[in-house]
Structures are given as structure tokens and as C-alpha cells.
């Protein structure tokens, strides 16, 4: 059970969108987490340094939030096997699908890309079906 948080989620979404806009305005880059991550996996892209800096910023952000007195609900409700299987599929899928929710869902859609719209509709539908099957067909 998680609490519906429309206000915080909207504010968080605006911050994610703001980071995408800043990354485009300052660096001319798309703020897709997968694309940024892929560029630092050997053989790394030649521009790995800004990528590593962006990733480092993303990793320290929750610690800053906690230090400022924030509370971060966090629960991994799946098995280690599911994390490994899911992670492998996510990694292979983003490589062929050219992006993830931050890249296609925020940046791609904001550029009115038809490819991004197709990718977003596909991965959302696949996730709805997968969760239904895992929780209510297999697990039910």
C-alpha cells in the first residue's frame, strides 16, 4: 500500500522536467537516464565526464533531501531474482527501444516525437500487463 501523493508527485515531476530543460539549454542534451548511463559503460563515450557528473548529482540528491529533514518512503516489494530478471530485461529493452520513461516519456514527448509516443505507449502497456500477470494471475 502506498499513499497517493498528487501534490508531491506533481512538484517532483516539474523538477524532473526542469532538469530536462536545463540540460538542453546548457548542454544540448536529452535527459534520458538510460542514454546518459550507457555513455559511461566501457567502451565509454568521449564525453563521459558530464555524464558522470549528472549521475553523481542524481545519486547524492536523496542524501541531500534526507539531510534537509525529508522523509523518503522506500520499499522493494519483489525478490532478488525478480530484480535481476527485471534489470536484464530493462537493460536489453532500453538498448533496442532507444530510451526509458525519462528519455522518451519526458524529453521525447516534449519534442513531439512519434517514435517516443510509440515507445511510451508500448512500455506502459507492457508494464500494466506484466504487473497484472505477476500479481493477479501467477501470484493471485
Amino acid at each position: 500500500m502506498t499513499e497517493f501523493t498528487p501534490f508531491q508527485s506533481l512538484i517532483g515531476g516539474v523538477l524532473i522536467g526542469l532538469s530536462a530543460v536545463l540540460l538542453m539549454a546548457l548542454h544540448g542534451r536529452v535527459a534520458g537516464m538510460t542514454g546518459i548511463l550507457t555513455g559511461i559503460i566501457p567502451p565509454a563515450a568521449s564525453d563521459w565526464s558530464w555524464r558522470a557528473a549528472f549521475l553523481a548529482g542524481a545519486v547524492i540528491a536523496p542524501a541531500l533531501y534526507l539531510a534537509a529533514g525529508g522523509v523518503i518512503p522506500f520499499e522493494v516489494p519483489v525478490s532478488t531474482g525478480a530484480l535481476i530478471l527485471g534489470g536484464l530485461l530493462v537493460g536489453i529493452g532500453v538498448h533496442f527501444g532507444n530510451g526509458c520513461p525519462s528519455g522518451h516519456g519526458i524529453c521525447g514527448l516534449a519534442r513531439l516525437s512519434r517514435r517516443s509516443l510509440a515507445a511510451v505507449l508500448t512500455f506502459m502497456l507492457a508494464a500494466f500487463i506484466t504487473v497484472f500477470v505477476v500479481r493477479h494471475v501467477i501470484g493471485g
Binding site: L83, G86, V90, G91, R115, T122, F123, T130, V131, V134
Partner: peptide
């Protein structure tokens, strides 16, 4: 594109995490 996105979505649904 569509196949990759579908595989991604299945993984996302299994793990609950995305990058």
C-alpha cells in the same frame, strides 16, 4: 523500437525500478 520498449516494460513491471 516497439520490441525494445515492450521488453523494457516487462522488466519494469517485474522489478518496479527503471533507470
Amino acid at each position: 523500437l516497439v520490441g525494445g520498449a515492450a521488453v523494457f516494460g516487462i522488466g519494469w513491471g517485474i522489478a518496479g525500478f527503471c533507470p
